[in-house]
Design a protein around this nucleic acid. Structure first.
Length: 224
DNA sequence: TCATTAAATTGTT
DNA sequence: AACAATTTAATGA
């Protein structure tokens, strides 16, 4: 998945759009490349777009009420986020950082609302998306506070494999341990140790520059 | 196709 | 944070 056009072709909600409508979405969406480590969008800015990851990997850093970064969610190629903020008309509550050079699509708020008006499949897609994201955050609240680094990493990895939120992701996920550490909020050596423990438990296989998930259910339940 | 080199990633201290 | 070992990617014969 390299271009926005290819991303649209693969999207279930786009399949039923009239060719003219699809062309409108394509022409109104801004696509740009974000360098590794740069902000895709800032916390506190007014939300003007629904954001899609065409190619690459970004993290949403969830900041709790007291301002401490607590939990992280990875979004990879094919995923969309920020629909809640577009609908609620409030300042964005998360920083989004590109973990590697990434191609990002900014679908303007007006186009987003127009899609909601004209397309029932798009409405269903958004409802499903919101529901899955909600479930993800609930799961995070359960895990984040109580558990240690290994379990946090396991949960973080399992969340990357939600097929609704990250459609493009394959069983073998190309993500370096450096990127993994940033995603889980750990140091690289800590992430390395955690990954090795998960491999010993038979849940993943460590590849060069990536990991392969062997037991997704086991990852979700992993307690350390 | 194979060998050499550079760059990236990993495991360890 | 720094180091050495390993893997991949790139280059050229």
């Amino acid at each position: 998945m390299t271009t926005f056009a290819a991303m649209l072709r693969a999207a279930p909600w786009a399949a039923t759009l009239a060719p003219g409508d699809l062309a409108r979405v394509e022409s109104e969406t801004l696509v740009r490349t974000c360098a590794s480590g740069t902000l895709v969008c800032r916390r506190g800015e007014t939300v003007e777009a629904w954001i899609g990851v065409v190619d690459g990997l970004v993290k949403m850093t969830n900041v709790s009420a007291d301002g401490k970064p607590t939990s992280f969610v990875g979004v990879s190629s094919g995923g969309w986020f920020g629909e809640g903020s577009v609908l609620k008309d409030e300042p964005r509550r998360y920083d989004i950082v590109a973990l590697r050079e990434s191609v990002i699509a900014y679908l303007p708020k007006a186009t987003f609302l127009w899609l909601l008006d004209i397309s029932m499949p798009f409405n269903r897609f958004i409802i499903t998306q919101l529901n899955e994201r909600l479930g993800q955050f609930i799961g995070m609240v359960e895990h984040d506070r109580l558990l240690g680094p290994e379990a946090r990493l396991a949960h973080c990895l399992a969340a990357m494999f939600n097929p609704v939120l990250n459609p493009g992701v394959q069983p073998s996920l190309p993500i370096s341990q450096e990127e993994f550490a940033q995603l889980a909020g750990l140091s690289r050596q800590r992430a390395n140790q955690a990954l090795q423990r998960l491999e010993q438990a038979g849940l993943v296989r460590i590849d060069y520059g990536g990991v392969t998930v062997r037991d997704l259910a086991g990852l979700r339940q992993f307690q350390g």
